[in-house]
Amino acid sequence: MHPRRWTEFAIESLIRVLGLSSIGFVLLIFLFLLKEGLPAFLQVPPENLLGTRWYPTFDLFGTLPLILGSLLVTATAISIALPLGVATAVFVREVAPGWAREVLKPMIEVLAGIPSVVLGFFGMTVLAPLVRETLDAPTGLTAFTGGLVLAYMALPTIISVAEDALDAVPKSYRDAGLAMGATQWQTIWRVVVPAARSGILTAVMLGMGRAIGETMAVMMVTGNAARMPTTIDSLFRPVRTMTATIAAEMGEVARGSTHYHVLFGIGIILFVITFVLNLVAAGAIFKKRRRGGLR
């Protein structure tokens, strides 16, 4: 073969091997997760696994408080980050003058790069005492504090993606709204934001994915008590999430024990939840696209 054909062939093969291997690694991780996690569902009876008490030392593996803990913290984070994030995106795209947008957008994106442990530290030393004093509670390490920190972590993603979605709305929609005698605010709220709906939904889902999978910051600020968040004041009590449980206990668990497998089992549950979230988001976006709304 001609030497140039050879280099061409070599480069192509290299790219192919690299691409396939990254798919292979993801698959292997997934298989490992299944291999280590599935025994938990066989070894521990479902009524124990779905119980309300998480005391691994007494063979009580109730994951319900952990699942609910994760959901509570994530829901709190999203209910703070969604309105704030969308409002900020609207401000950056629709209200702020051009030069301010040029400055704000990269600044917001840089915020996404702050390591979670730094935010956790900030939450621990600043937010938690603030929450404790404001609420006059015994501890500031609560689900709410975790929600605040997670909201902060999800915000840059939500703002950035939502701003892109708003930016993709054709100018002709804005013109039409304004030419009808709608105010700028009415045009934004009733035309531009609905037109960017699917993009904003993606933004929220990405933010949510980040929040539910976050470990370090959550572990540092939520207090990590595996109690059922079923009372009204649960939001302002300590809570323990799935991720924090895995991170905190994996280091000390005996390899191959039931407890070990249950921790991987929690990993599977977490995986399923995020997978479903992504599926729902993708489904909503796909439906929208087929209607021809994404132009």
Partner: peptide, 12 residues
């Protein structure tokens, strides 16, 4: 009121 060059109904 104004009608534009390209039809621009809202995606609603």
């Amino acid at each position: 009121g104004m009608v534009f060059q390209r039809p621009n109904p809202f995606p609603q």
